[in-house]
Design a protein around this nucleic acid. Sequence first.
DNA 1: AACGTGTCCAACCGCATGGGT
DNA 2: TACCCATGCGGTTGGACACGT
Length: 228
Amino acid sequence: MGRSPCCEKAHTNKGAWTKEEDDRLIAYIRAHGEGCWRSLPKAAGLLRCGKSCRLRWINYLRPDLKRGNFTEDEDELIIKLHSLLGNKWSLIAARLPGRTDNEIKNYWNTHIRRKLLNRGVDPLTHKQLNESTARHVANTICCNGVNYEDNKEDSNYDIKNPNEFINKDDDDEMKKIPDLNLDLRISPPTEPIMSSSMDKSKSKNNGNGYDFLGLKSGFLDFRSLETK
DNA sequence: AACGTGTCCAACCGCATGGGT
DNA sequence: TACCCATGCGGTTGGACACGT
C-alpha cells in the first residue's frame, strides 16, 4: 500500500489555472501570507490541492518574479552554477533573483543544453566533447543527457559514475581541460532576500540566518565560486 | 487551409526531507 | 526510535503554439 494522496483528488481541479483561481489565490496570500499550503485551498475557496497552489504561486503568481527572456549574463551564471551544483535547480534559482527553479530547469533543457552542445561542451559534465563523444551526447535524448540504456554499451561510460563519462582514448585532450574546483566558500549575501518563506527558512538556520555553505538559504555568493 | 512536426513551458507526480509527537 | 504529516524538489508530461510543407 502506498502513501495516501496529498489531497482529496476526486474534488480538485487539475490542469491550467483560470483567471478567477489566480485572483483567489493572490488575494488569499496577500491577506494571510504564504504557508499552510494544505489548508490554503479550502480557506481560499479553491478546488485545488495544496501542492498545486504552492506551485502556481511560486512559479507564476509571485510578485517578485522576473518575466521575460534570460540575459546573456544569466545564461553564463546558470552554466557556471550548474557546473558546480548539478541539477540542483532550487539552489541555482536562489542565485538568480526573480527566477524560479522550474523556469531555470525548463530553460536549461530547452536552450542551454543545446547551446553547450553547439560549443562542444557536454552539458552533463561541462567538459569539452571530442567528436565521438559529442555525437554520443547529441544522440542522447533524455533531459539529463544520460540514457543509461544507450550508455551501458559504451565501454567508456561508467554507469556507477556517469560524471566520469570521458573518452579514455583521448587522455591528452582531457589533460587540457581544467578540473573544476568544487570547493565552495561562504560569503555574506549581497542583498537580503525578503519573503515570508525565506523568513521561515531562516528559522531553521543558525543565528545568522545562513545555512551551511549558504546553500539552503540561497546566500552562497556566486562571486566566491571559481574554477582552478 | 490543412496537416505534420518540433518547441516551449505550466503543471503534475512521486519521492525526499525535516519537524513534531 | 518510529511514525505521521506538510512541504520542497527534480523529473516528466501534455497541451498550446510556431513553423514548414
